[in-house]
Structure formats: C-alpha cells, structure tokens
Amino acid sequence: MISRRSVLKAVFTGGAVAGLGVLMPSIALAAWNKAAFETDNQDTAMGALFDGAPSASAEVNLKAPDIAENGAVVPVTISSSMAGVKTIAVFVEGNPNPLAAQFAIPAGTKAEVSCRIRMGKTSAVTAVVETASGLFSASKEVKVTIGGCGG
C-alpha cells in the first residue's frame, strides 16, 4: 500500500534528482573550471585546464582580425582539420582573466566554432585544441584600437 509518507518521499527524492540534473548538466563533458577561468595568468589557466603544454600546430586554424577596432567585440573562429577534437579553448593573454572560453566538442560536431570575445588591450590570442593525441595551439597578435581612428 502506498502511504502518504512514501509518496512524499518519492516526490522529494525525484525533485532533488531533477534539480541536480538542471544544475549540473555539464558534468558529463567538462564542468566550468573555476580555477582556470578566474586566474590572471595564462600559464596557470592552461595548467588548470590541461595536463601539459600545447605545441604549436599548423592544423589549428585561428581566424581573428589583425586589428580590432572595438575591443569589446572581437570575432574569432577556431577550426581544426585534426580528427578526434575534444575541446577547444581560447585565451587572450592581455586580459584580466586570460581564459575567454572553452568549448567541448562531442563526437559528431565539427571542430569549428565561432564566438566573439572581449579584449582589454593589444595582445596575443591563443587557441588550444585538445585531441586524443595531445594539445595543439595557434596564436595570433590582435591589435586593439579603442576609440582611435580605427587603424
């Protein structure tokens, strides 16, 4: 027989589980890495996110403007021809928090993402692609001219 108590209990447990699911849908792939996002040092951020340092690779394609007229909106596109890309991360060295964004690429999704980032000043933008065989990066210097004559 179903008592009132067991019904309530079931409802509460179910609710708690559903709540957890809503709060942490990211756990399966990569949770938001607090240490990596909040540090002010690019090397620390990379260390928190990956084991080991990435090596520069021509197969990582970072598309960013040479000169960004408005540092608040800098469009970047990262793509890679490598197979088995797991994550893509974007770092802006000169920012207060160098790690801008990290994308988890599940199987079946193309290793190409576009987003727009903020840049405080002229600095190097680095894209790091993590594959099953290691870490690869590409970087590019982006000049930021805020309010000026726009280069």
Binding site: P25, S26, A28, L29, A30, W32, N33, F37, A72, V73, V74, P75, T77, V92, N95, P96, N97, P98, L99, A100, A101, Q102, F103, A104, I105, P106, G108, T109, K110, E112, V113, S114, C115, R116, I117, R118, M119
Partner: peptide
Amino acid sequence: GKKVMEANMGTAVSKNPYLAFTFEG
C-alpha cells in the same frame, strides 16, 4: 537529448555572446 555543443565562457566573452558551430545530422 544528445549534447552537440557545450561552451564554458569566462568574462572575456563579449556582451550578447554569439556562438556558431556545425554538427552532423
């Protein structure tokens, strides 16, 4: 029900964040 993209963003992502990607299927 299958995750096709997950983006973790920091404060360096611009206002009104934009995200573009392609998946199979």
